[in-house]
Amino acid sequence: MNILACIKHVPDTETRVKVAPGGGALDLGEANWVINPYDEFAVEAALQLKEKKGDGTVTVLTVGNDEAVKSLRQALAMGADKGVLCSDPAFDGSDAKGIARILAEAIKKNPFDVVFFGKHGVGDDNQQVGSLVAALLNIPAVTVVTAIDYGEAGFVKCNREVEGGVEVVKAPLPCAITCQKGLNEPRYPSLKGIMAAKKKEVSTLKAADLGIDPSQVGKAGAAFEIKGYELPPPRPDGRVLSGEIDAQVKELVHLLHEEAKVI
C-alpha cells in the first residue's frame, strides 16, 4: 500500500500574535514552529494503516521552506518512511488553492491508496486543502473523520463529525481523509525513531519538477488579495461580582436578563 500524509509546518498554538508595523503582515515573534497538531493525527493514521496491512510505505509531504523539514523529520521519527519537500520561491505566498495545486501535482507522481490530511491547518485556518487536493485528483474526500474502518477491501468506512451527530461515509479507494481529534492518539517518536529519521530520504521538488506554471501558484496565483491584518478589538472591561454567593448569583442572573439581555 502506498499511504501518504500531507503535513504543514505551523507556529505552535501558544504563539502570541501581533500585527507588524504597517498592518500588512503578522508578527509572530519568536514563535516555536511545529507540525500542525491535526497533521499528527494524519501521520498516526497513516502509520496505523501500514501496520494493519503489514506492508506498505508511508510518505509525508509538505509545501514549505527548508524549515519545514523539521516537521518532516518529526513525522519520519514517528515512523514514516520517506519525506517530500515541495519548495520553490514561486510557491511563497500561496493560498489554499495554490498549496492544493502543488500537493496534487506531487501526489500524482506516484500511485497511492490513501492520502491523509489534517482537518485544519492552525494559523491560516483554511480548512480547505484536503478537500481541494481530492477534488483536483478527482477522488472522494471524507472530511473531519473521527474513526476509520478498513474492513471491506477497496473501501474505507469513516465516521465524520457533523453538528449534533456522526455521519458514516463509505468511500472507494483511492481517497482522501481529513483527520479530526479523536481519531487516534499520535505516538511520540522514540529515541530510536529519532536516530533513524536522520537517515531517511527527504527529496525536494521544485515547480519545474512538478510541471507547475509559477503564475498559478504563490502570490501571483492567489485568488484573494490580502488587504491587511488587525487584532480583535479588546473586550470591554468586565465586572467581578462581590458579596455573599447567594446574592452574587441573584445579581448575575439579573444582569444577564436586564443589562446584557441574553437570557
Binding site: 488553492k97 488587504k227 491584518y229 488587525e230 480583535p232
Partner: peptide, 30 residues
C-alpha cells in the same frame, strides 16, 4: 478561490472586502 469562515464584509464601490479570523481569532485578515 474560496475564502473560509468570513465574519464580516464591507461593500464599497462595487467591490467587497471580507474579514476572517486567523490563528483562531487571535487576529483578523481582510
Amino acid at each position: 478561490g474560496l475564502l473560509s469562515d468570513v465574519t464580516a464584509y464591507k461593500a464599497e464601490n462595487g467591490t467587497v472586502t471580507y474579514k476572517r479570523p486567523v490563528y483562531s481569532g487571535k487576529a483578523y485578515v481582510s
